[in-house]
Computed example of a mutant assay.
Amino acid sequence: MDFIRLVVLYGLFTYVSAIEPFSTFGAIGTAVLAGLYTVYGPVKCQFKECCTSTWINLNSTALQDELQSKLYGQHLVTDVIIKHLKAHMMKDPSKALTLSFHGGTGTGKNYVSKIIAESIYKQGMRSKYVHLISSTKEFPHKDMVPLYKDKLRDLIETSVKECPQSLFIFDEIDKMPPGLIDTIKPYLDFYEQLGGTDYRKATFLFLSNTAGDAISKHVLSNWLNREDIELKEMEHIISKATINTKTSGMYHSDIIYKHMITAYVPFLPMERRHIKECIKDVLVAQNYYKRKDIPEEDVRKIANQLNYFPSNEEIFSVTGCKRVPEKVSYVMETDED
């Protein structure tokens, strides 16, 4: 029915223009164009991504299921992510949601970012409203900070004007040139409008290895009571380490001093038992086994290919689950030979 209306409106516009193109365009032509937009707009958004609830809508159930079933050893992550996203997406937020992920390599920071994108955007990480910014790729030269600041402002302002519910993922923010991150401070504040644009519905994720050592040290001291570690104590450890680490992109940042971070999210070092669960997921994903048929011996052999710390006890994986896929391929292909 919408297609028929579109054809009729287009025909009317063509007919009117042919009779008296200039005088009639102002009255009837404008009305026809308005009709075309009214019909074509919704039709277009059925097939092409738009900034509407059809394409952007938090599926909190899917988010919770993914985090609980696929994220290992991170009991502090699931609750804080779900609660803050639900509060931000389902209400009128007072400021942009800003979550700062901290932890060592392979503990799940990028993985959780991907889960978040897929639970909100129909197109997931491929959505044109999801912006992944790699600090090492986009900001490699410390002497070009003024240029980078303009580039960053333009990206955020252009993106949010197009879609208020834009998501910005800053990977390896600890490698960002000092001072650059404060460029985005105004967009994280409580302003109802900034230059005519409301930035409060946007979401910012900061991914960093900063404070990874401090997190690991604290978890090692509380290893036997790992599940009793609370978010509040970890947030204090993270914020202190982040603002005082000279090599961090957040060193003495106003974003921290002015309390622009909604929550610091700690990703704890992963134990061998957590690594084994990652190994099982990869074995299934690479079609070596169905999960119920996975031999424990294969899991053990793959887990032994990874390095652990501290050296005298070998409790935590040095690289988390990051190197699991390549170790799975190595061990399984070797066994087949």
Score class of each variant (00 low, 15 high):
residue 13 F to S: 13
residue 13 F to I: 07
residue 30 T to Q: 11
residue 33 L to D: 06
residue 33 L to W: 04
residue 38 T to G: 06
residue 44 K to M: 06
residue 51 C to W: 05
residue 53 S to C: 09
residue 53 S to W: 02
residue 56 I to V: 15
residue 72 Y to V: 07
residue 73 G to T: 10
residue 77 V to H: 02
residue 78 T to H: 07
residue 78 T to R: 10
residue 79 D to S: 13
residue 83 K to V: 13
residue 86 K to H: 04
residue 89 M to I: 05
residue 96 A to G: 15
residue 102 H to A: 10
residue 103 G to I: 00
residue 104 G to I: 07
residue 116 I to S: 05
residue 118 E to D: 14
residue 120 I to R: 00
residue 135 S to N: 02
residue 136 T to Q: 14
residue 148 Y to S: 12
residue 154 D to E: 15
residue 160 V to H: 09
residue 161 K to Q: 15
residue 164 P to T: 09
residue 172 E to L: 03
residue 175 K to L: 06
residue 183 T to Y: 05
residue 184 I to K: 00
residue 187 Y to N: 04
residue 190 F to S: 10
residue 198 D to F: 08
residue 200 R to G: 02
residue 207 L to V: 03
residue 209 N to L: 07
residue 214 A to D: 03
residue 219 V to W: 02
residue 220 L to N: 13
residue 221 S to H: 11
residue 224 L to Y: 11
residue 239 S to Y: 02
residue 254 D to R: 12
residue 259 H to D: 12
residue 264 Y to M: 03
residue 264 Y to W: 14
residue 268 L to F: 07
residue 279 I to N: 04
residue 280 K to E: 14
residue 282 V to W: 04
residue 284 V to N: 12
residue 285 A to W: 08
residue 287 N to K: 15
residue 292 K to W: 08
residue 301 K to N: 12
residue 305 Q to E: 09
residue 307 N to Q: 13
residue 318 V to W: 03
residue 318 V to L: 12
residue 323 R to T: 15
residue 326 E to F: 13
residue 335 D to S: 10
